[in-house]
């Protein structure tokens, strides 16, 4: 049953995308009509603030993490195993 549903969705990708975009637009438009009781922060005043926040947060997290990874942290995934196998060799590269 689930396989059939997923297969159908995958077969109608264009439709799925249109629905998703409609939902995203609907969220921003809908935000204009939401009552706000105890505004703590800009996000509780500006409509659509959290949409921008979510998008920017996602992009920032990916870019900063990837940068940290490529600049400093990435190693081949055999990094430790090569070391475990031959402890006398010191670092791999």
């Amino acid at each position: 049953m689930i396989v059939r549903i997923i297969a159908w969705l995958r077969g109608h990708m264009f439709f799925v995308k249109i629905v998703c975009i409609a939902v995203l637009i609907g969220l921003i438009v809908g935000d204009l009509f939401v009552p706000r009781h105890h505004p703590h922060f800009l996000g509780d005043i500006i409509p659509g603030f959290w949409a921008g926040f979510g998008f920017i947060a996602c992009v920032l997290i990916i870019i900063i993490s990837k940068w940290l990874g490529t600049a400093f942290l990435f190693r081949p995934d055999t990094y430790y195993s090569a070391n475990d196998a031959k402890p006398s060799e010191g670092e791999m590269k």
Binding site: L24, G54, V59, I62, F74, Y79
Partner: peptide, 26 residues
Amino acid sequence: YQILLFTMLGFFLLLGKLKPKALIGL
């Protein structure tokens, strides 16, 4: 919903950057 669904938008736009590679992070 705004935060989460717009995160989803960012995910699918940047999908190429997230392709898994056989790497580990120190």
